[in-house]
């Protein structure tokens, strides 16, 4: 229990630091990462902490600015997916069986769709803007969590206060807002976290495949250019491909820590074991 709490705290602190860096960082920089300021492939130095890319642009600036792109899509997708999942899953848990059955078949269908290929398809044809990417990823990742939340609501029926309110003649909306919400709300943390994780990795993969938005840099696009411009063949990968990858690892780990900590706290059998 204490270790889980610690993990959750570490994750939360890391996430806050990353978010602050992403929001405030770009203002503190002296460059926007597009100006050619140094020799191509310049190694790190005192003013250019991560050296420069093939066009002599500051890589540290790109890393800081890229955080906005990566964290931004994570936030957007997680918000959208969690909202859809909560509404669909919550109402499916309260709806009559036949209606819930239809909804769950739709969920099955979405789960059976080939995720990454569809995302690539959308990016290739609809254009890789942030909005499109976020919408497509959200449209794909809500289904699993919706199932989870429905299961949570169904389990909550055994708690009785939902039953009692229904016996009083409450409508499905009333039940969802007043009675299912305390059950659903804690589930939303792991759902949010998981959606954010998926979004970051999927989006970075997309960027790596060359389908990122060229106008807004992200960690994924950095790795893409590093790979395309031959950084892997010289020592430049050390300051070009490694840092954005590590940034992704750090962010996703922080999210995972928060997720695991809440999941462990949610499991009643684990709690009782304390």
């Amino acid at each position: 229990m204490r270790a889980g709490l610690l993990a959750g705290r570490i994750g939360a602190v890391l996430l806050t630091a990353l978010a602050v860096g992403a929001v405030a960082g770009p203002w503190l920089l002296s460059t926007d990462g597009r100006e050619r300021l140094a020799a191509p492939y310049a190694p790190p130095s005192a003013d250019r902490w991560l050296g420069a890319d093939d066009l002599g642009r500051d890589l540290f600036a790109q890393l800081v600015i890229g955080a906005r792109g990566s964290l931004g899509i994570a936030l957007l997708v997680a918000l959208a997916a969690t909202t859809i999942a909560a509404l669909v899953g919550g109402l499916a848990g309260l709806a009559p069986p036949w209606a819930a059955g239809i909804v769950m078949r739709v969920v099955d269908l979405v789960l059976a769709l080939p995720f990454l290929p569809l995302l690539i398809l959308a990016a290739a044809f609809l254009g890789p803007t942030l909005g499109v990417r976020a919408a497509v990823v959200a449209a794909l990742v809500w289904a699993g969590p919706a199932r989870l939340i429905r299961a949570g609501v169904l389990a909550a029926w055994s708690r009785g206060h939902l039953q009692a309110a229904r016996a009083m003649g409450a409508s499905a909306w009333y039940l969802l807002l007043r009675h299912a919400s305390p059950v659903v709300a804690p589930l939303l943390v792991p759902v949010f976290v998981r959606a954010a994780m998926t979004a970051i990795v999927l989006d970075a993969s997309l960027a790596f495949l060359g389908l990122g938005d060229p106008t807004s840099p992200s960690w994924g696009t950095m790795i893409h250019w590093a790979s395309v411009r031959g950084a892997m063949l010289t020592d430049a990968w050390l300051w070009w491909a490694l840092p954005p990858g590590l940034a992704i690892v750090l962010t996703v780990t922080a999210l995972a820590l928060v997720g695991v900590a809440t999941e462990d706290r949610l499991n009643p059998t684990l709690r009782q074991a304390r």
């Binding site: 009785g160 206060h161 016996a167 003649g169 305390p182």
Partner: peptide, 23 residues
């Protein structure tokens, strides 16, 4: 309409722990 009828009924469930919203 059905919910309207329920407003005129009282229901007491088995489990006094679960049937009351804890908060």
């Amino acid at each position: 309409q059905l919910r309207g009828v329920r407003h005129r009924l009282g229901f007491v469930a088995q489990d006094p722990y679960g049937a009351l919203h804890p908060a």
